[in-house]
Simulated scan of single mutants.
Amino acid sequence: MTDPDSRAWHRLFPAEQDALAAAGYTRTWRPDEIIASQGGPPGSMYVLRSGWVKITVTNDRGELAPIAARGPGEIVGELAAITDLPRNATIQAITPVTALVIPATRLRAVLSNRPHIAEELFRTAAIRLEQSAHLHLEAGGPEFPQRLAAILVELAAQCAPDAPADAPIILPFGQEELAAIARVSRSTLIRGLDRLRSLSIVATTRGRVIIERQQQLREFAAGKRTV
């Protein structure tokens, strides 16, 4: 798994963190509260202190699809705040969330004096673009259980980059959201999950999928036989 320091906030120097903290303020949200809306004004950048959010997009047909989950140490909403363009996704709290909120004008003032922060923000954007591309590629694979396994591997890397290799990972997505990510019906998703459950690779609870055997999941996604 990726080292926790790969999360954007942890890659910044202490003086850079202090500068951003001085430019912003702390706010909390309840579960399911909308933090920022797709198509809305650029507004602020958010540094997640605690809790989890999901990032969703709505296409031209009105279909809603989650594309990522972000947790403590992650920075979200940065591109809109930097470019001053409308937001291209919705940020919604999954759990109670506390975040450092940095208004766009203050953020740009900090970036003008501390270009390394901008470099790290754009690096984060590039990493996320690659993750999104992987999800789209995996969603077009041949047999669905293998394709689903590849999608779960990618989501696990996003949701728990610092998880030990033998630790279970709880994905903060329900079945409807996973079906939207995989671009399949819920019944097809359930059949795929049933296959992975039969191999003791994943378990499911209400509104959650738990990856119980990370290595076996990666092997199954790669087309290797697993037991």
Results as ranks from 00 to 15, higher is better:
L217H: 00
T205E: 15
S198F: 00
D194E: 15
S198H: 04
S187N: 13
V184T: 12
L196W: 03
S200F: 06
S185C: 05
I211A: 02
R195S: 09
R197E: 15
L199Y: 02
S200T: 08
Q214Y: 03
L196D: 01
L196F: 03
E212V: 06
T204G: 13
E212L: 09
R197Q: 14
I211N: 01
R206N: 09
I201M: 11
G207Y: 10
V184Q: 07
R195W: 01
V202Y: 05
I190R: 13
L199F: 05
S200L: 11
R191Q: 15
S187Y: 09
L193Y: 04
S185A: 11
I210V: 15
L217Q: 00
L217N: 00
S187H: 10
S185I: 09
V209M: 04
R191V: 14
Q215T: 12
I190W: 07
S187A: 15
R197T: 11
R191N: 15
R208E: 13
R206Y: 09
Q215I: 08
R195C: 06
A182K: 13
A182H: 12
Q215H: 10
Q214S: 09
R206E: 07
S198I: 01
V202H: 02
Q215W: 04
I190A: 11
L196S: 05
S200Y: 07
I210Y: 14
A203T: 05
I201E: 06
I190F: 10
D194N: 09
R208W: 02
Q215E: 15
I190Q: 12
A182E: 08
I201S: 05
R186T: 11
I190S: 12
A182M: 13
T205V: 13
V202D: 03
S200C: 09
Q214D: 00
S185V: 07
V209Y: 01
I210N: 08
T205I: 11
T204F: 03
D194Q: 12
V209K: 01
R191T: 15
A203H: 07
R183W: 01
I211K: 03
T188F: 04
I211P: 02
L199A: 04
Q215C: 03
S198V: 00
I211H: 03
L196E: 03
V202K: 04
S185N: 10
L196R: 04
A203Q: 12
Q215A: 07
G207T: 11
R191W: 10
Q215P: 04
V184A: 06
I190G: 02
V202L: 09
A182L: 11
S187V: 13
Q216L: 15
S187M: 13
R206P: 01
S200H: 12
V209N: 04
L217D: 00
L193A: 05
V184W: 03
R208P: 08
L217G: 00
